[in-house]
Amino acid sequence: MQPVIETKDLKKYFKVGSSSFLHAVDTVNLSIPAGATLGVVGESGCGKSTLGRTILGLHPATDGQVLYKGRDITHLKPAERKKLAREMQIIFQDPYSSINPRHSISHIIGEPIKVHKLVKGKAELEERVRELMNTVGLAPRLYDAYPHELDGGRRQRVGIARALGMAPEFIVCDEPVSALDVSIQAQILNLLMDLQEKMGLTYMFITHDLSVVKHISNEIAVMYLGQCVERAPSDELFKNPAHPYTRALLSAIPVPNASARERKPQLIRGEITSPIDPKPGCRFAVRCPHATESCTGEELHLTELSPGHFVMCRLHEN
């Protein structure tokens, strides 16, 4: 089946200073089948949000391709891009800054519908907005409320309703639950999964929280300094993590049960290095406990370990 989203050697560099480049996204290849969820995990600064935005065209790509249902959408004219925006939406991380405090809830949800002329007349717009509020579980009395009257969870529901207004097929969820408390986080995750089942949505779910990503994703991509270092079906990744970074990430999650005490996390030394003009070779090598000389100097490529399980690491090259 044709994937909804596919990237081919996608690159996004930002110019820093006069001649340096920050490699935010470097040669990333992904594909997301219809109705599935790809989880993208990594720590701050690994390029996961930039990847999401580059796919949507919010950042122009430096090189490589983004395909939407087989069609190249890397360089579209503004008019075409606008048309496509109906099918591809984004839900942002921070519900406190992603909705306008001076507009009412109905205005915020209704505005994109008006911009794209999806309904005729005021009555129809109101009906559509109320329907969307109902879908995401917002009480009808909040129709004329303002964002400051809402808590984080409800604001995030507004963000979701706004994205759903376009009846999109593909949604980039950029850390949609990380600003929320656990009990509210669970409500929003359930909502996103229900909507996916009901509407057949395709998600790219960006997060730094590995337990959330396992919960919601079919496939997971692990990013480190702009590169996708490992990609595998969700269960496979948690069962057989291959990349030393993935292993360190997995062991670093604090688990809320009694066995947590015995489980000693594999600490990795140091911190993420600079993404500006990285040297060829493995970018994790300086922190890696298994690093050898062969890890640096030459670009690495993804190796397929088992069907669908790819890793970028010398340890796993034959």
Binding site: A186, N190, K214, I253
Partner: peptide, 19 residues
């Protein structure tokens, strides 16, 4: 409820039971 809200890495539960 707090425990039910946390996605558990070791289980295959699809739906969370939030408060």
């Amino acid at each position: 409820g707090l425990f039910g809200s946390i996605p558990n890495i070791d289980s295959r539960e699809r739906r969370l039971t939030p408060i």
